[in-house]
Design a protein around this nucleic acid. Structure first.
Lengths: 145, 145
DNA sequence: TATTGTTATACTCTATAACTATA
DNA sequence: TATAGTTATAGAGTATAACAATA
């Protein structure tokens, strides 16, 4: 392993990460197609780990609240989610996955997982090192100074 | 560093990579906005490192050839690209960046680069290890057996 | 006959604005 | 008066189909 200048490493890292992003996106599309989900529906399904109100889902998905109406309509039509009136605030509707919704969500995650075979060539300790390095790099600085 | 089961590492790695993908996407949008580029135009600009025919760009962008017509129209309108008739095949038009196009492309890449400050907390040797691990994981197996 | 690029058109994703019911 | 959700509508991104010119 020859020593490389920081700029070279940086460029290479960006290329690698973009390449990984491409593979992840491709695999994501395959998984969604297998489960008859469009990208927006899959995103909503993934976000709904816990019940949340529609405005909460909008924030989670970084989209407008009006868009969530259509998403919820379609998820409801497919029997994946229910709109539950909130007992404390009658304006609010809570989105909660049905049994079918939870099941499909699990299957989606399993499919996403299965697609990540590209790092299977790494040994356990290499994988651990990779995770630790990425975590160290990503940690949000906690000092608010 | 306690030893963790492979499944846990895998799940964590996927989460980290998705988080990184999110940051990269955000930074990409900022860079494009600064340079008054839409995502499709930025993608085309990035792809046009070398001159290529329109069908080649379509393949590179994984989109339909008809869509490239509109992309090329807009890039040409902005003075970023030229359509050059191919001397060997009069059906073909080669897309070639103008000086302004090359300049904007460079600036786009510089901006994308500048946004990747999240790994600056890593030491040089950690960065090198990270790159090597990712490269080892990604390498396409060359044995066609 | 097959391929390159273009046009016309339609579909998906998503936001904005105006509205209602409730707080 | 402000907020949660809905509706109507418009705009961006993209594909499909039909076409002209050339191979």
């Amino acid at each position: 392993m020859t020593s490389r200048p920081r700029a070279t490493l940086t460029r290479e890292l960006i290329e690698l990460l973009e390449s990984i992003g491409g593979r992840m996106r491709e695999r994501m599309y395959e998984a969604m197609a297998e489960l008859h989900l469009t990208p927006p529906l899959a995103g909503a399904l993934r976000a709904l780990e816990q019940p949340m109100q529609m405005s909460g889902l909008a924030e989670r998905l970084s989209c407008d609240a009006s868009y969530v109406t259509g998403l919820a309509d379609e998820l409801e039509r497919r029997g994946l989610v229910e709109r539950r009136p909130d007992p404390d605030d009658r304006r609010v509707k809570n989105l909660v996955l049905t049994e079918a919704g939870r099941d499909l969500r699990r299957r989606l995650h399993r499919e996403i997982h299965r697609g990540h075979d590209w790092f299977e060539r790494l040994e356990d300790d290499q994988l651990a090192t990779l995770v630790d390095l990425l975590r160290a790099a990503l940690v949000v600085d906690p000092s608010p100074t």
